[in-house]
Design a protein around this nucleic acid. Sequence first.
RNA 1: GUCCCCAUCGUCUAGCCCGGUCAGGACGUCUCCCUUUCACGGAGAUAACCGGGGUUCGAAUCCCCGUGGGGACACCA
Length: 457
Amino acid sequence: MSQVRVRFAPSPTGFFHIGSARTALFNWLYARHTGGVFILRIEDTDKERNSEQFLKVIYDSLRWLGLNWDEGPQVGGAFGPYRQSERAAVYAEYLEKLKAAGRTYEKDGATWFKLMGERYEAYDEHRKKTVTKVKVAPTVIEDRIRGRVERVEDEDFVIVRSDGNPVFHFVNVVDDIAMRITHVIRGEDHLSNTSKHVELFKAFGAPVPAFAHIPLILKQNGPGKMSKRDQGALIEEYQKRGFLAEALVNFLCLLGWNPKDDREKMAIADVIALFDLPGVNQSNARFDEKKLAHMNMVYLLALPTERFAALAKAYFQTHAAGAAVLADEAYFREIMLLAQPKIKGMEELPAYTAYFFTEDFAIDPKVKDKIMVKGEPKVRLGELIAALATMEVSSDTAIEEAIKALATSRSLGFGDYQAVARLALSGTNAGPSITAMIRVLGRERATARLAKFLAGA
RNA sequence: GUCCCCAUCGUCUAGCCCGGUCAGGACGUCUCCCUUUCACGGAGAUAACCGGGGUUCGAAUCCCCGUGGGGACACCA
């Protein structure tokens, strides 16, 4: 069989959303699995609604996700141009073929595609008007995911608007023919358009590609499919929020497809090896941000520390707080290493590490109330300050030994110092070990924080 | 309204095609363990075959009908 050629054909009329990303991903996976060609085609025939800004978002998002295209804008290819707005000549040529075959007619200034069959009038309940229908045999769609689907396509439809611009159904099919597309993998919302498309392929005398309609992603709360306005719908959003692209891609792979065993975290190469169209689910899937967050954490934990530090740096740079935090690179790196095993996502980073970068951090009043009533926290603090003056602070173990020795000398445990020291050092009750905090903060700053807290308590 | 698609824990899903499993995994939630806080991790608990009819010795699995969910019905894509 000849080489597989698939295309992702977004239209730049809004931000790039998660359903589109998954459609792109499944096309890409299928191309990579079969050694085929993944084509990016921009469907920008609606001049009113398209924008260059959205086009850039599509390119950026695909690149971020790692979905490189073999043919398309910016990379070229033998079947270009790949933006429909630049393909007017191709459409004119194909329109002539259809006209020559007697499959078109003009009405109200527009060009219509003519179905073959006996015509009759019928009242349409939905559109509240009488329409002309055609007696036709059902169109058969052989879908690689759903099997055989039959649908009656019994009304002529517009292929070129009265303003001269060709419409989606027409250009979509023409380009699929011209670009030698072998498999059309797209959302299920297109399934009922497919009968129109099949009739067009047949009218052109062109081979009908294989279709594969993938299920839709439903919004996590409330009815309906996920739309661009829904929370968590935009790819760009995840990028901004510091999600790992690998994690998002892995999550998306599992929304509607699975390896048939218990694996969830999978290298993309393994997904490529296993991915196939019949393995795609037929039912819609509800988007679950908690599962995505978990996947992101799993990837974050597995990240080499240097890569994590680099990503953390990039995150701070794009989120205002930047300059002050990044002033001392080595210091910043130390803190990121402490934070990596503790956080679920990059978004938690600024709040989680804030007290390392300022002496002006807030003391959580609730935590304070809890800690200051147990034992003799002030006495413990005084002892710790004294011990800090002479203890070795170059390593976590040295600090731990010193505090343990102090505790033993008072017949106490490490824990008797831990909570109050943490509160004084960070203002909270959650975070890295206090030994690491003291080491990174250094003797002077640690001592100063303990003393300041003691004075205020 | 018409047409099309779909239906297993709250969610993502395995199992269905080729009927016989305590209906498996993961997220979430809860409990316990680990522990120097918080996380991570470990152990456990929770929870599902939409309903009704068939077919069959036997149905989550095959068939039909309901119901429910989703999608499409533009000179948008």
